[in-house]
Amino acid sequence: MLVLTHGDLVTRTSYNHDVLFRVKSIEGSLVKLIGEHVRLEADAPLEDLNKVSGSEYLERKTHINKQEACSYRLFRQDYRLLKEKREVEAGGSYQDSDEKSNYFQISPRILHIDGDPLFLKKCVQLYEQLGLQVHGQYIQEKNMPLEVVALVKKIQPEIVVLTGHDAYSKSKGSTKDLESYRHSRYFVEAVRNLRQHYPHFDQLVIFAGACQSHFESLIKAGANFASSPARVNIHAIDPVYVAARIAYTSFMDHINIWDVVRNTISGEKGLGGLQTRGLLRIGMPYSEDVEN
């Protein structure tokens, strides 16, 4: 008989071992699981699980690392194009990163609220790697509607990310029914509560959702961007790239939705949204003290 403990890595035989999970908890013969690389939550009977060996984990991790590196490289290419455009708008010619710019930039504050503390840590590290100011907060999905407004009032961000884990269950009903989803209703309620206080879509930009989340309800509740239009899984770091694209686009420009999702691992099946203005502002002359 398979023996599991909290944090063990497993796959499900009934799903052809497609997703790598961490064991969240064990209740008798039922095991609660959360995705190791995707924002999916699931339950499975003990007999359906297969414990992952070290070599198999390294093989899967290598594949994921390649996907993440590709997304990062594509974003950096886009960032360079955005920087070139800012140089021109500031009245100068494009300069390489080694040269001093003749302008400074004020990027928006980001509040990233995550239902997974390990994913939160990984996302915060990526924000910092991308040069963005972020406040990360771990809150369980079910508590987000209760805590999000007070936290936004305290942090005063321009971008809010509400994410964690989610899942759609066919056995619970139609894809149109919020009760068929593990956490979508909490994301929806949290977005709706925020919009009651911050109704302007370009004043507070909201991303909400996780794997297989009810995209349409999240958009109707007031999210600028959300997951998951095709009810597919989304990667742990995908919300970061959505927020980063908004943060590095000038407030004078509208964001092309395709430009937001094309550098994510999940793409347009996993992420979508509304036309939204960027939030970056530039100023002159250059001042390191102002920018920092």
Rank of each mutant, 00 (worst) to 15 (best):
223 A>R: 08
220 K>N: 11
202 D>I: 06
177 D>V: 07
216 E>A: 10
199 P>K: 08
209 G>I: 08
228 S>G: 05
189 E>C: 03
218 L>I: 09
222 G>E: 03
215 F>W: 13
179 E>S: 10
192 R>P: 01
182 R>C: 04
219 I>C: 05
204 L>Y: 10
192 R>Q: 13
216 E>M: 07
182 R>Q: 04
210 A>L: 11
209 G>K: 00
198 Y>F: 15
215 F>G: 01
184 S>Y: 10
218 L>D: 07
224 N>P: 04
210 A>F: 08
224 N>I: 04
192 R>I: 03
197 H>I: 12
218 L>C: 07
209 G>P: 00
210 A>Y: 08
202 D>R: 03
182 R>N: 02
208 A>G: 11
184 S>I: 14
181 Y>Q: 02
213 S>T: 14
197 H>F: 11
181 Y>D: 04
196 Q>K: 14
209 G>M: 06
230 A>Q: 14
203 Q>L: 07
174 S>A: 11
225 F>I: 15
183 H>G: 03
218 L>P: 04
206 I>W: 07
223 A>D: 08
174 S>P: 05
178 L>V: 13
174 S>R: 14
217 S>W: 01
176 K>Y: 06
226 A>C: 00
183 H>N: 15
199 P>F: 13
223 A>Q: 08
195 R>C: 05
217 S>D: 09
209 G>E: 03
182 R>Y: 04
205 V>N: 02
216 E>N: 06
176 K>V: 02
217 S>H: 12
184 S>K: 10
179 E>Y: 02
219 I>F: 08
184 S>P: 08
217 S>G: 15
209 G>Q: 01
190 A>C: 10
222 G>K: 01
204 L>P: 09
202 D>S: 12
207 F>G: 12
191 V>T: 12
209 G>S: 04
186 Y>V: 02
208 A>K: 10
205 V>D: 07
195 R>H: 08
190 A>Q: 06
211 C>N: 02
214 H>R: 08
175 T>L: 14
221 A>Q: 06
201 F>N: 07
180 S>D: 11
194 L>P: 00
227 S>Q: 05
175 T>A: 11
175 T>P: 13
200 H>D: 15
194 L>S: 10
215 F>E: 00
206 I>H: 03
204 L>R: 13
176 K>A: 10
214 H>V: 09
216 E>P: 00
190 A>L: 06
190 A>Y: 06
183 H>L: 05
185 R>P: 01
181 Y>H: 05
198 Y>M: 08
221 A>Y: 03
179 E>K: 10
194 L>T: 05
198 Y>S: 12
189 E>P: 02
217 S>A: 13
219 I>G: 03
181 Y>S: 02
231 R>I: 07
228 S>C: 10
206 I>E: 09
194 L>W: 05
207 F>S: 09
208 A>I: 08
196 Q>W: 00
228 S>L: 03
209 G>N: 03
216 E>I: 06
226 A>Q: 02
230 A>W: 13
176 K>G: 01
195 R>V: 07
188 V>H: 04
187 F>G: 03
217 S>C: 02
196 Q>N: 15
183 H>A: 15
201 F>H: 15
214 H>M: 03
211 C>G: 05
187 F>Q: 06
174 S>L: 07
213 S>P: 00
230 A>K: 15
207 F>T: 13
220 K>R: 13
190 A>H: 11
220 K>F: 09
218 L>W: 08
